[in-house]
C-alpha cells in the first residue's frame, strides 16, 4: 500500500545545473513513475549549512513530497547513498500538511543567485535570542512564527 513520504535531499552546491537536474531526475524516477502527479518538488536553493559537511559549507536543498510503495523507497535510498554529490538525505513517513517556506527561499532560481541570502540570515540569529525568548515571552511572541508558517 502506498504511503505518503517527504524526503529532504542536500546536494553539493558546486554541482552544474544540468548535472544536478539529471541526478534529481534519476532519484525521482526511482520513487514515482513519470507523470505521477502525487510528487511535489520544492527547491530551497543553495543555503549555508549550519556546520560543514565533508568540508563543504553550502548545500542545495530539495524537498520531495510523494506517495509511493515502501519497496521503491529502498532502491531510492540505495541510489542516494551511492551518489557522492548527495550530502544528506532524510525521509519522513506521513509528513505534516503545513509547508514551510524558508525566509530565504528561492523557488525560482534554485542554484544560481540564492547563494548570498541564506548565509546572512541563517547563521547569526540562533546564538543571540534563543535562550530567553521561550521562557519570558511565551504568550506574546509565538504569534510571529505561527504567521510565518502560514505564509
Amino acid at each position: 500500500m502506498a504511503r505518503s513520504y517527504e524526503t529532504v535531499l542536500i546536494f553539493d552546491s558546486t554541482l552544474d545545473e544540468s548535472v544536478f537536474e539529471q541526478k534529481l531526475g534519476r532519484l525521482k524516477g526511482a520513487l514515482v513513475d513519470d507523470g505521477d502527479e502525487s510528487m511535489t518538488v520544492t527547491q530551497w536553493g543553495t543555503r549555508k549549512l549550519a556546520y560543514p559537511i565533508g568540508k563543504k559549507e553550502q548545500g542545495t536543498y530539495v524537498i520531495l513530497r510523494y506517495d509511493t510503495e515502501p519497496d521503491r523507497l529502498v532502491e531510492f535510498e540505495r541510489l542516494a547513498k551511492l551518489d557522492e554529490q548527495v550530502m544528506r538525505q532524510l525521509t519522513i513517513v506521513d509528513p505534516i500538511e503545513s509547508t514551510i517556506v524558508p525566509a530565504t527561499t528561492s523557488t525560482d532560481e534554485p542554484a544560481a543567485t540564492s547563494t548570498d541570502e541564506p548565509a546572512t540570515t541563517s547563521t547569526d540569529e540562533p546564538a543571540a535570542t534563543s535562550t530567553d525568548e521561550p521562557a519570558t515571552t511565551s504568550t506574546d511572541e509565538p504569534a510571529e512564527p505561527g504567521v510565518e508558517v502560514q505564509e
Binding site: P102, A103, S130, P145, V149
Partner: peptide
C-alpha cells in the same frame, strides 16, 4: 524544516 522555530 522551520529553522527559526527550532532555534528558539
Amino acid at each position: 524544516k522551520d529553522q527559526h522555530m527550532l532555534d528558539r
